[in-house]
């Protein structure tokens, strides 16, 4: 789904490369954590996938396209297959939740009846039923992120990129967001999530790609966050990560509490 072949990215001539000979292969339907300190190249990785940047050397393939050599006018087609979520939500403050989600479809020219049918469905999926008419400021951080996720997946992208989606949220709320991302992943969407949140990485036990100074230093199928000892080494990809609001949050919560 996403393939990096010896990708290097140098922003300024002579500077240390943001990415250095990175080769990563993400399969369809995978859930990948991208971890590493600030400045390790996570954001560059994501922006190369989005083709906000072009690699200095190497090739990037996304959904079968050679992104580095994609001509400008085809970039929108690529991005329609990608959903993106950010740490700061990036909702439009002058639009309601419903309008924010609908906006993503309107601007790619979807017909009105499609929007009318799809938006409530997606809002229900992310757990914002009945909150479509609220303004972003009237929502909690977690709800805002759910709205942002709804916007990212409303066009049914093949890949969801998340850049520290839980960075602004408290641990409990983060957990809800992670359950949501997991659920989206289970519907077949490839998820790549850059994060600093070691607890989440350790609890989810998914593939971890660790970057350090632009180099892949670790690529583990069911990894933990890294150096630090995992808090709950045995929880793994247990059925804990269930649908939000279904009330089965006990194991993780108690686990952490004990």
């Amino acid at each position: 789904m996403i393939r990096f072949e010896n990708v290097s990215k140098v922003y300024a001539r002579g500077a240390r490369p943001a990415l250095d000979q990175v080769s990563v292969d993400v399969e369809r339907g995978e859930f990948v954590f991208l971890v590493g300190a600030s400045g390790s190249g996570k954001s560059t990785f994501l922006s190369l996938v989005l083709r906000e940047q072009r690699p200095t050397r190497g090739r990037v393939y996304v959904a079968g396209r050679d992104v580095a050599n994609l001509s400008g006018w085809r970039v929108p087609t690529l991005r329609r297959q990608l959903g993106v979520v950010f740490q700061d939500f990036r909702l439009l403050q002058n639009k309601t939740v419903h309008e924010n989600v609908a906006f993503a479809l309107q601007v790619i020219g979807k017909p009105r009846h499609v929007i009318r049918d799809t938006v409530p469905e997606v809002l229900e999926m992310v757990g914002l039923t009945g909150k479509g008419k609220r303004m972003p400021t009237e929502l909690s951080g977690g709800e805002q992120q759910r709205a942002a996720i709804a916007r990212a997946i409303v066009n049914r992208p093949q890949i969801l990129l998340a850049d520290e989606p839980t960075g602004n949220l408290d641990p409990t709320t983060s957990l809800g967001i992670m359950r949501l991302l997991d659920r989206i992943n289970r519907t077949g969407t490839t998820v790549v999530m850059a994060t600093h949140d070691d607890e989440i990485v350790n609890e989810m036990r998914r593939r971890v790609v660790e970057l350090s100074d632009g180099v892949v230093v670790r690529d583990e199928a069911r990894g933990g966050y890294g150096e630090r000892e995992a808090i709950l080494p045995d929880v793994g990809a247990s059925p804990v990560l269930d649908a939000p609001g279904s009330g089965t949050r006990a194991p993780v919560q108690t686990g952490r509490g004990s």
Binding site: W73, L82, V84, A104, V107, R151
Partner: peptide
């Protein structure tokens, strides 16, 4: 700016933006 940024990210065409 914010609208435009979102439009770019969700794949709106240049002309549309």
């Amino acid at each position: 700016r914010k609208e435009t940024e979102i439009m770019r990210l969700v794949g709106a065409s240049n002309l549309f933006i």
